[in-house]
């Protein structure tokens, strides 16, 4: 833990984490579309090419399966690759490499090799990028044993979680909400890491628990403020990684408040919210004073029309309404 911190954006926090890890360990390198000369479409990788050169900062063709395949191979030789998939929607193109290779090889070789690979991808709706550039597919990968799935919500966690992900000997998917890159907050300086599998309680409360991933933290905060005006104190918890999941913190909060709402921007059907809801009710059933509720993206292809797109994203108003229903 470092002593100093500065205020910066999530974009800066991720950029800093990659810089620091590449300086610390020369096995770390980065590949992706437009990450070098252009500094990334969201400018997350700016400055890397200048400092580390084209050997370690590699612009690639538009070939997701190829990039991840190369990275899996590099990881097997002892390198620690970071791959940027420009939009998380495109992970589907690389899914054979991720699901059938990266996730499996350590097991299938009985530990003779490991895949210390980080795949960063921009997720989430709100950028008017339409149905093929706006999805949140974290549940797809959380479903696969052998993969870790990390979803930072603020600059400090973005830095600390990415550094832990890079140092992890397993494939880690690191989802960045593209609407959050400019979100500001303290960034601890120096070697700051956040362990994977530890939830963070952002706000303590006694009346209901909001479990929210990634950018859903912000509508949850807004809702918590509104509810507090009515005297309803909600607890706001960010699991930070959904695999591994800090079940204990979530269940303890459920036991404390008796009312749980889970918010994740992935589709609600069969989503992250469903898994967390099931686990919470299994362990906290006797303490629940209302059914566990879920709020995910509307189950539709994300519309291009801004007015419609906004309606698919969980909002503070919906959260307030559901908390009212649970406490009715």
């Amino acid at each position: 833990m470092s002593m100093h911190e500065r205020i910066g954006t999530i974009r800066e926090a991720i950029n800093e984490a990659i810089h620091e890890e590449m300086r610390r360990d020369d096995r770390v390198f980065i590949m992706g579309e437009d990450i070098g000369v252009a500094g990334g479409v969201f400018k997350v990788t700016a400055g890397l090419l200048d400092e580390f050169g084209p050997e370690r900062v590699r612009d690639t063709p538009i070939t997701e399966a190829g990039i991840v395949g190369l990275a899996v191979g590099a990881a097997m030789t002892g390198m620690r690759p970071i791959v940027e998939i420009m939009f998380s929607d495109f992970t589907t193109l690389a899914s054979d490499q991720i699901v059938n290779q990266a996730a499996k090889l350590r097991y299938m070789t009985a530990g003779q090799t490991s895949i210390p690979l980080v795949i960063r991808a921009a997720m989430g709706a709100g950028r008017r990028a339409a149905a093929q550039h706006s999805q949140s597919l974290q549940a797809w990968f959380a479903h696969i044993p052998g993969l870790k799935v990390v979803m930072p919500s603020n600059p400090a966690d973005a830095k600390g979680l990415l550094k832990s992900a890079i140092r992890d000997d397993n494939p880690v998917l690191y989802f960045e909400d593209k609407m959050m890159y400019n979100e500001k907050g303290p960034i601890p300086e120096g070697d700051y890491t956040v362990p994977l599998g530890e939830a963070r309680i952002h706000r303590e409360g006694t009346d209901a628990t909001l479990i929210c991933t990634s950018s859903m933290l912000y509508p949850a905060f807004d809702a918590a403020d509104k509810l507090a005006e009515e005297g309803i104190e909600v607890e706001v918890i960010d699991p930070r990684s959904i695999t591994p999941l800090d079940e204990e913190t979530l269940v303890n909060s459920a036991i404390k408040t008796g009312h749980v709402l889970i918010i994740d921007e992935g589709y609600q059907n069969y989503g992250v919210t469903a898994e967390i809801a099931a686990r919470v009710q299994e362990k906290a059933f006797d303490y629940l004073d209302a059914p566990v509720r879920r709020l995910g993206a509307a189950d539709v292809p994300i519309p291009f029309a801004p007015s419609l797109e906004d309606l698919t994203i969980p909002s503070a108003d919906q959260i307030v309404e559901i908390v009212h229903e649970m406490r009715a």
Binding site: G258, L288, D289
Partner: peptide, 8 residues
């Protein structure tokens, strides 16, 4: 109708 918490 009753909630688990009520019964506990």
């Amino acid at each position: 109708p009753s909630t688990p918490a009520a019964r506990r």
